[in-house]
Structure formats: structure tokens, C-alpha cells
Amino acid sequence: MLCPYDAGRTAGDLKAIMEWMAMSKVIDLDKFREFFLTEVEEAYPEVERTDSLPEAIHKRAAEIGCYRLTLPVEYGGYGMSVTEYLPYLEASAEGPGVGRMLVHTTNGIWRPVHNFGNAEQRALLPKMGAGETVIAFALTEMTGGTGRDLKSVARREGDTWRLSGEKHLITWADRADWFLIVAATDDGSAKDSLTAFLIPRDIEGFEIDATQHTMGLHGTGHAFLRYKDMVVPDKYRLGEVGQGLEVALFFLDYSRVSLSTTMVGLAKRALDESVKFAKRRVTFGKPIATRAQMQTHLAMMHADIEAARYLVRHAAKLCEDGKDFTPQAATAKLFNLNMVGRVTDLALRVHGGWGYTREAPIERIYRDARGYWFEEGTAEIQQLVVARHVLETSAAA
């Protein structure tokens, strides 16, 4: 898969982007990180209690440019390339999971809308960048897998469609104004059997059940979506009939690199917390940081994080250069899934019993990390992609 959003950018484009960023006073990286480690962190008790995002955090995120980072300049964004964007995304992941989800989803969902949307649909993007509109990506189902295994169906009736089915674990469903839904429009299992729709929240027959609470990532508004014979005007179709899988992949290919980067950021925070704790925790008259076993844990965590960061940056560079990056992105995601599990396991061991209490930041970090096993492609799916690449390239050799 070629990177769909960076190849072919000219020097003139870069100059325009830099001028726009200077004019817009885009926040520097340290101040960007500080927002997630202070304001979002301080708001997290309310997030945990209510399992919803405080409106004040949403507004502040919009003010500092969280939703504009990769959004094209034509829509009021900063137009950052992948490699320019990744340090910001990694920084956002050092705070509570709700923060990195704000950055990750908004800097991805504009891509299919921009590339497949009509003028009316694209008009939503400046509002999204300003924090005035929220768009949710709705693919995952309880009754089927993803891709060609979707059980949601859409039957055409003249200038309208009738959609029936369900979705679950849909991020930001509690506050989204629009939903990008992919459904089957053909009885076959070919890649052109799916079609995408961008439907408004208030459409008749659309049930949003925001009672789906998760182990971690609190405040991200996960919900069930249900619809039976929901009448959807054809103007809400996103892309051509049969382009649904292509539309979905325009978000999902981005997400492999994006999510891998957030795993690095969360793992870094776990290491930072472990170092701080190891220096202040004293046993038998000495900080545990002086003990060889604790130093071994910290060293292994650091090595894992460094390797993970370079893997994802390599995939991002291929993407930015317009090259096929699917195998490298899948490799990064597979490695980083396991990496963030190993690092947070070791972090909990460094913290001892204290780390198992709600008072310790690592307790929340540990729970947030487990969400990665299910986000936009499991480890098993990444293994298939990587194995296919290995077999094909080995055969070619």
C-alpha cells in the first residue's frame, strides 16, 4: 500500500505549510506534551468518574491545535507530514489514553472524507479541525469481523438506502456529530462488496447506546450502534458504491503507524514513572534503583522503547516517500503491541504492590495499554500480514 497523503509534496507546499504554521502559532512540542501531562492529567479523576471527556478539555485541545496537525492547509490545518507529526502524537500518548485518542482519531478520520467525500462532506473538515464537529469511525461489529466479513447491510431503493445492522466499541460515539459507517451492499465477499456512508447523528432510526464501558481508555465514549431499515439518502454515501473497503483502509493504513507511535509514547511514560519510583522507593536503606535487578528491568524497558520507536519511524519514512509501507507498518504494530505489554508488565513489577493501587499512575497506564490488543487490527491480523510478506519475499529470493 502506498502512503495516501504525503507523496509528491512540493517545495512550494512545504513553504506554504511553514508560513501557515508560523502564522497560526502552532504550539511547540514541549508545550504540546505539557498539555497532556498537566491539564489532561489533572482532569482525569473526573474522566474516570464520569467515563466521559470534559468539554473544557475538548475545547483546549482544539485551541492548541490537536485537531489540525495533519489536516491539509486548505481546511485550516497545519498539513504536517507523517514524520513531522509523529513526535506530537507520541507526546500526546504520555498522558491519559483519552488524550492520545483525541489526536489519533481526528488526524486520521479526515483522510477518507477528503479523498472520497463530496463538497458538502468535505465542508465538515474545517469544523472538525476547529473542534466544532466530531466524526466517528464505525467499522467493528459484534456479529462479524471486519473488512469483507461485515454483517451490516445496505439495500438501495432509488435515491435512498436501507441500512440494517450493528457496530460496537465505536470511539467518540457519545459525542460524534457524524458517523463513517461501512456496510455490505452486495451478497459476495469481494473487496467491492462494501460501501461507506457518512451519516448524521440525528438521522431517524439510528440508536446510539453509550453504555459500553471498557477496562481502560476511559472518557473515549465507546458505544453500540444499532439500526434496522434505517433510511439513508444517497447524498450521505461516501465514495462510490463498492468502495467501502478502500474508504476504510484510507483510515486503517494510517492507523497502523499512528497507533504504533502512541504505544511508544505510553511505554515511555511507564518507564518515566518507573524511574521516578525506583529512585524514591527505599528498602534496606537504599533506593531500589541501586539494585541490579531493578536496573535490568529499566534497561530492558528502555531498549524495547528505542527499538519500537525506530521501527515505526522507518515505516513512516517509507510512507512519506510514497513507497509500499504495509509490511513495515504491520511489523511495527506487531512488535509494538508486544513491546508495550512487556514494558508495562515490567513497570508494574518495579512499582511492586503500590503499582496495583489506584493511587499509582502505572495502574491506569497498565489498563490503557491493554486496549491496544483490540484496536484496529489484532496482533493475529498483523502476524498474517507479516508472514505473508516474509513468504512472498523469501520465495522471490
Rank of each mutant, 00 (worst) to 15 (best):
A330M: 04
T326C: 04
H297M: 11
G371N: 05
G285R: 02
Q328E: 03
D304W: 13
T296D: 09
R280D: 00
K323L: 13
T357L: 09
T378R: 14
E375M: 09
R291N: 13
G341K: 08
E392C: 06
G355V: 00
D304C: 15
V312N: 01
V390L: 11
D324R: 01
A395P: 13
Q328K: 03
Y366M: 00
E392S: 10
K317S: 08
L346Y: 09
N336R: 12
A330N: 04
G341F: 13
T344N: 09
T331V: 07
T344F: 11
K286N: 07
P327H: 10
L348G: 06
S274T: 06
M301P: 13
K279R: 15
T326D: 03
D304L: 09
L391N: 08
A379R: 14
L298Q: 07
I362A: 05
D324G: 03
P287F: 10
I365D: 00
T357M: 10
R388H: 14
T393P: 01
A332V: 04
Q383Y: 14
D272Q: 11
E380L: 14
F277E: 08
M301Y: 15
V386C: 08
I365G: 01
I305H: 13
Y356K: 15
T378N: 04
K276E: 06
L311D: 04
Q293P: 11
L311K: 07
Q328C: 01
I288A: 04
L384T: 09
G355L: 04
S394E: 00
R358S: 05
A307C: 15
A278G: 09
T357S: 06
L391E: 08
L346S: 13
M301Q: 12
A307Q: 15
R349C: 07
L391S: 05
R313C: 01
I305M: 10
A307H: 13
G352I: 08
K276A: 11
P327G: 05
E273K: 14
L391Y: 05
I365Y: 03
A289I: 05
R281S: 07
F284N: 09
V282T: 10
R388G: 08
V386S: 07
V282L: 09
A278L: 09
R349E: 11
E359Y: 07
L348K: 10
T290Q: 09
L348Q: 08
M294Y: 11
T357N: 07
H351E: 01
T357V: 13
M294F: 11
I381E: 05
A330Y: 02
F284G: 04
I362E: 01
V340E: 02
A315F: 00
Q295H: 12
A330S: 12
I362W: 02
F277D: 06
E306L: 15
T378E: 03
A289K: 05
L391R: 08
R367S: 03
R342A: 15
R349D: 12
L346P: 09
G322Y: 04
A315L: 01
A316G: 07
G352P: 14
I305F: 10
H351T: 00
A360W: 08
M300D: 11
P327M: 02
K317W: 06
V350A: 10
I365T: 01
A315W: 00
P361F: 01
L348D: 02
V390C: 03
R388T: 11
M294P: 03
H302Q: 13
F374G: 00
K333Y: 15
A292G: 12
D324K: 01
L337S: 05
